[in-house]
Write a protein that binds this DNA or RNA. Sequence first.
DNA 1: TGAGTTATGGACTGTTTGGTTCCTAACGGT
DNA 2: ACCGTTAGGAACCAAACAGTCCATAACTCA
Lengths: 193, 193
Amino acid sequence: MGRPREFNVSKAIERATEVFWVHGYEDASLPDLLNGMGLTRGSLYKAFTDKRSLFLRVLDHYERRAVQSGYDMLTDSAISDGRKRIQSMFANVYDAVKDGDHRGCLLCTAAAGPSANDPEIAKHVTDGLSLLRKGIAQALKDSPKHCVWDEGKRLRLADHLLTQYVGLRIIARSQVPMGILEHACEGIAELLD
Amino acid sequence: MGRPREFNVSKAIERATEVFWVHGYEDASLPDLLNGMGLTRGSLYKAFTDKRSLFLRVLDHYERRAVQSGYDMLTDSAISDGRKRIQSMFANVYDAVKDGDHRGCLLCTAAAGPSANDPEIAKHVTDGLSLLRKGIAQALKDSPKHCVWDEGKRLRLADHLLTQYVGLRIIARSQVPMGILEHACEGIAELLD
DNA sequence: TGAGTTATGGACTGTTTGGTTCCTAACGGT
DNA sequence: ACCGTTAGGAACCAAACAGTCCATAACTCA
């Protein structure tokens, strides 16, 4: 009962995701969010409590959407060689930049900023990156070259690749020449072969 | 002539560097800087114009201090095997974190934040990272394993390693479990051998 | 010693920040 | 038709922000 909401909550979160994705948590101002989401202060605070809580909802949504699809790709048994999955994951990162998408990764941006010190936000970031790490490890297990390695060495390579992912996503947001990003992705492909 | 300055400018920049290093550009407030540098608003604005100009001075100082010493290590011909230089560079990154230093790299933090869109700041970041890249490339040239590679492949590996550096420095500032950072550094050592 | 010059430090300013309040609108149940 | 409840929207708020102003202090030079 009561007056019905005039906007769709999940649509609003999707729009908020876009705003946070572009600006990062601290740099996304309330006017930015209000404008991007198409609602007024009263509605936003009634529905989402405050900016931080909205961001937590957004992180949740991002995890289920972007991170999960990355994990799915890394563990997609339809591509039998795990290396190919990893390579296409990094190819996707590069392609996004090539197409002018400089948003990077919401989690990586959050990890790099002051909000990383917020325990709850940090947990989301860690969980998301851990899922990616798990996917990478699985892909390596499915690689003919790496499946014969001992577990420890494979996990070290997985962590190395995860770190590479973070680095690429940060560079994607920066003004550093994108040739570096392209080369780095090609370097990964060579390194895995 | 006129009243002499009561503080040492280079000492003040050093202290400002520390503040920006810990907080990043946008998160370092004027009170933070004033407090950390031990001077008042009037003095700071008289000597450094404004926050942004001070940050540019700091970037300059950081480049000559931290970045240059990294480059020197990467091109130190006293260590004949270039791989060893790269490995000890990453070992230094890990050791810093192990010793509780979570400041990361001033340039990487700047690259990850909104200030990366400031052209002049971006130039400093790019220049600094380019110097590191050059050092890495030289080190690879001095590696028995990699000197026989063709130039292109070696540069792709250099870019890969630079990206790794950025990723590690970002993770160092985050709450992501530091085991990942340790593993990643070990992974690099294995990968280069 | 007085004139010119520059540094200092605190008070002040205007803007932007995230967040709150409160009146009104729009509904469901009785 | 009225009541309870919830949403919407604009006005409002306190705090923090970077930056400015100005009276005073500390010096050099004539």
